[in-house]
């Protein structure tokens, strides 16, 4: 991991707690009133002035317990700024969807959560994230251990060219687990969890590359959950799949809900509407609006959100 990343992080130990910087005050009990649309800041202004945008956060989120907290996170690819001061709290045990038009930075944000962007050479970041209260971008963070706490599922199914069994137990293998019984039980549990056990059981020793695309993606999910992560990061997990496979994955996400905190990027608004409990809308590197899915899709506060979900752009 490049050393420069550490240097880029400002030492700011005594940060204020999350949400206070948002427009929404922390409150308990009853939810505050929604502001009127014309009172809200304009995304267009932020874009024109090249400044960050204060996210419109729905009050329902305040009641949720946050597992991942993103705090004024900015990211540059070289000179180009891809993320603008993003702050959001990802609620524990819920499915949160990131939506937005292409190039809005949702995948970048997702990959920043488990520091996969470290691999890209020109990336520079500012701000911090926290997983269960522990800093992600702090100076003495063990990135490897951090990633073990987060399973990741990619856009394209990417099983390793090994047997199905070895694919699933890979997170345990790199931990040095050699006990056959443990490996076997974890493989079964994970494959059952990923609804693949019935199909995979007779061919555990065969190459994973012999599976169909949908099966491969479920295998990747099985692999992601085998390491018992706290968070599952899904980067458009269905974009390379046909509708039948997609619905199976969606059913699977439905079942994983509750056990895992899922952060999912999707291009497909119906999918976001179907599976997620919270939805965050991103636009040109800014997190525009963040709230319960049904509210975002039915009564968005921001005009940009409405324009997007009604298909006027994107």
């Amino acid at each position: 991991m490049p050393e420069t990343l550490h240097a880029a992080i400002p030492e700011n130990e005594d940060r204020e707690p999350f949400m206070t910087e948002n427009t929404m005050p922390r409150a308990s009990g009853d939810l505050p009133e929604l502001p009127a649309r014309e009172d809200l800041p304009s995304v267009a202004d932020a874009l024109r002035e090249e400044t960050s945008f204060a996210t419109v956060v729905h009050p329902e989120l305040i009641q949720e317990e946050a597992l991942v907290e993103i705090e004024r996170f900015s990211l540059w690819y070289g000179a180009k700024r891809a993320l603008w001061d993003i702050s959001m709290a990802i609620p524990k045990g819920k499915v949160t969807a990131l939506i937005g038009p292409s190039g809005c930075g949702k995948s970048t944000l997702l990959r920043s959560v488990n520091r996969m962007n470290d691999l890209i050479d020109t990336v520079r970041i500012d701000g911090d994230m926290r997983l269960d209260g522990e800093s992600i971008y702090g100076r003495n963070v063990d990135v490897i251990e951090l990633r073990k706490r987060m399973g990741m599922v990619f856009q394209k199914p990417n099983p390793f060219p090994m047997s199905i069994f070895e694919n699933v137990v890979y997170p345990l293998r790199i931990e040095g687990v050699k006990d056959k019984k443990i490996l076997r039980s974890v493989a079964e549990r994970s494959l059952r969890g990923a609804a693949l056990w019935e199909e995979a059981e007779p061919r555990l020793r065969e190459s994973a590359l012999g599976l169909s695309g949908g099966q491969q993606q479920r295998l990747c999910i099985a692999r992601a959950v085998a390491g018992e992560p706290e968070v599952l990061l899904m980067d458009e997990p269905c974009s390379a799949l046909d509708p039948v496979a997609t619905s199976k994955i969606e059913d699977l996400i439905e079942e994983l809900k509750g056990d895992y905190t899922i952060l999912m990027v999707t291009h497909n608004m119906q999918q976001a509407a179907r599976v997620s409990e919270y939805t965050a809308f991103m636009y040109l590197g800014r997190l525009v609006e963040y709230g319960p899915t049904d509210r975002i899709f039915t009564q968005p506060l921001c005009s940009e959100t409405e324009d997007y979900i009604t298909g006027r752009f994107g």
Partner: peptide, 15 residues
């Protein structure tokens, strides 16, 4: 070797 395999492995927490 496709980059996505490296990403998958690193994403699992491999060194």
């Amino acid at each position: 070797v496709p980059q996505h395999l490296r990403a998958a492995s690193l994403g699992c927490g491999a060194t």
